[in-house]
Write a protein that binds this DNA or RNA. Structure first.
Lengths: 231, 231
DNA sequence: CGCGGCTTTGATGTTCATCAAGTAAAGTGG
DNA sequence: CCACTTTACTTGATGAACATCAAAGCCGCG
C-alpha cells in the first residue's frame, strides 16, 4: 500500500456525480479534506475481517474481492467489485467492525473517507442523506437479486452467468483475463473446482468460449446467454 | 382489508423505540398524522408486484410473505417476515414501483407511512436519517447472510435451518404451525416439494421432530442445529 | 531440484430432480 | 348434502446432476 502523492480534489472526481451531487461546494470541500487515497498493488490486503470500521471505502480504479475466512482455513468469496461500487457500503453503518476482508486483485486506487465526516454531512444535508439511502437501497437490491438468481441456477447456468457478468459489467469486453483462480470462482458460486474446470472445458468444446490459460474469450454470446437463463 | 377503527398514536407504538427514537415529539406527531393502519385477513394481498411505492410498510402484528410471480405461473417466495421488520425497507428508496408482492399469511396489522412524510423527516432531522441508514444496513446484512448460508447448505441443512428459524425467530416456540405449504417452503429454499416432504419424514423417523398435520414440534433441538450447521 | 499449489481428466458414489401413482383434504356446483 | 374437481400431501422408482476421490501434468518459488 502506498499513498498517492497527487491527491486529487473531490471536485474533479467522477464519484462526485455518483453520490455527492447534492452536496454544496462547502460540504464537498470538507469531505475532500477528510479522505485518503491509496494505491494497493495486486494481491495486497485492503481490509481484514475484524478491523474497526472508521471510513467508507470506495474503489476508484482496479478490481477487488470481498471474502470471509471460514473455519477450516479456507476462504469464501462474497463478491468481486469493480469501480463505481461502494464496496463497504453494505454493512458499514450497522457494524463497528468489518465482517469480511477485502483485497486487491488488480492494482487499485482506493479512497477512504472518514466515517465521522460522512455522518456529519448526512446529519447536516438532508438531500445527501436521501442520496445515500437511495444508493444503499440500490446496491442491496442488486446484490440480493444476483444472489437469488444464482441460487436457482444449475452449475452450467452459474458459470455462464459469471462469465457474462465479467464480460459485460466488469471488463466490458468479450475477451478478458479471469481475475481469480478456478478454485475461487468455485467458492464464489458455490460449486467445486473440478466442475468449474469441467464446464469451462465443455463450453470450449461447444465453441462457446476460447480458453488460453487465464484468458477467456466469449465467441458465442447468444448461446451463453441462453445457458445462463435456462440454468 | 379493513381500516382499524381505533388508530393508536405513534407515541404509544412499540415501533417508536425501534426507529423513531431520535425524532422529537413535534416530528413524531407529523409522522403519526400521515400514516394509515389496516387489518389484513389471512390470505389477503397487501401489495401487488408493480404497485406504485408511496409509503413505507411495516408489520405490527401477524405474519406476511414477500414473493414474486415468475413466468410459468408459479411464485417464488423471497421471505417470510415477522413483526418488528420493516417489510418494505429493502428497496423502497431505489424503486418507484414494487418488484414483489406481499400477502398476509396470518391476520396482520399493517401500518403504512406516507413516503413523502418520511422523506421530509429524513431531510430535516439528521439523526433520524442516520437511524434509517443504520436500520437498512442491518436488514441488508441479515437478509444477505441468511441467503449466503442457505445457498451453501444441502437439502437437509436447508430444512433444518428453516425449522430453526421458524421456531427461534418467528414463533419463539419449539411447537408451531407451518405457516405455508410444503410447496411454498420448497420455493423459499430452492428445492422440490417432494424433497421437503421426504426430509421432514426422515426427521420424524429420526425423532428430531413430531409432525401432526401442519403442526411441527422440535424434540431434538441439538441434533437439528448440528444438521443445519453441517449442511 | 523438489515442493506445494493450481489445473485437468477420469472413475465412482451420493444427492437430488423428475416421473408416476395414490391418498387425503378442501373447495364447488347441482 | 353428495358427487365432482381440484389442490395438497405422500411414497417409491429412476436417471441426471453433482461431489468426491484419485492421479497426473504444469508452473512458480525457495
Amino acid at each position: 500500500m502506498s499513498e498517492l502523492n497527487s491527491i486529487p480534489k473531490c471536485e474533479g472526481c467522477s464519484y462526485k456525480l455518483l453520490l455527492f451531487e447534492s452536496l454544496p461546494e462547502k460540504n464537498l470541500e470538507r469531505i475532500s479534506a477528510c479522505k485518503q487515497q491509496y494505491l494497493f498493488k495486486k494481491g495486497e490486503q485492503v481490509i481484514s475481517e475484524g478491523d474497526e470500521i472508521n471510513s467508507i471505502v470506495y474503489l476508484q480504479k482496479g478490481l477487488i474481492k470481498l471474502y470471509k475466512n471460514i473455519p477450516n482455513g479456507k476462504t469464501q468469496i462474497i463478491s468481486i467489485a469493480r469501480p463505481y461500487e461502494f464496496v463497504g457500503l453494505l454493512s458499514v453503518f450497522s457494524n463497528s467492525n468489518y465482517i469480511y476482508s477485502i483485497s486487491a486483485i488488480e492494482d487499485s486506487h482506493i479512497c477512504f473517507i472518514d466515517m465521522p465526516c460522512i455522518k456529519d454531512e448526512i446529519k447536516e444535508i438532508g438531500t445527501f442523506a436521501l442520496d445515500i439511502i437511495k444508493k444503499m437501497s440500490k446496491i442491496t437490491d442488486d446484490v440480493l437479486n444476483a444472489k437469488y438468481e444464482l441460487c436457482k441456477k444449475n452449475l452450467r447456468g452459474r458459470i455462464a452467468y459469471t462469465l457474462l457478468d465479467l464480460a459485460q459489467h466488469i471488463y466490458k469486453d468479450n475477451e478478458f483475463e479471469l481475475p481469480v483462480s478456478r478454485r475461487e470462482i468455485a467458492d464464489l458460486i458455490d460449486m467445486r473446482t473440478e466442475n468449474v474446470i469441467r464446464i469451462l472445458s465443455e463450453f470450449r468444446k461447444d465453441k462457446i468460449i476460447k480458453i488460453n490459460g487465464p484468458i477467456i474469450e466469449i465467441i458465442n454470446m447468444d448461446l451463453l446467454k441462453k445457458i445462463s437463463l435456462a440454468g
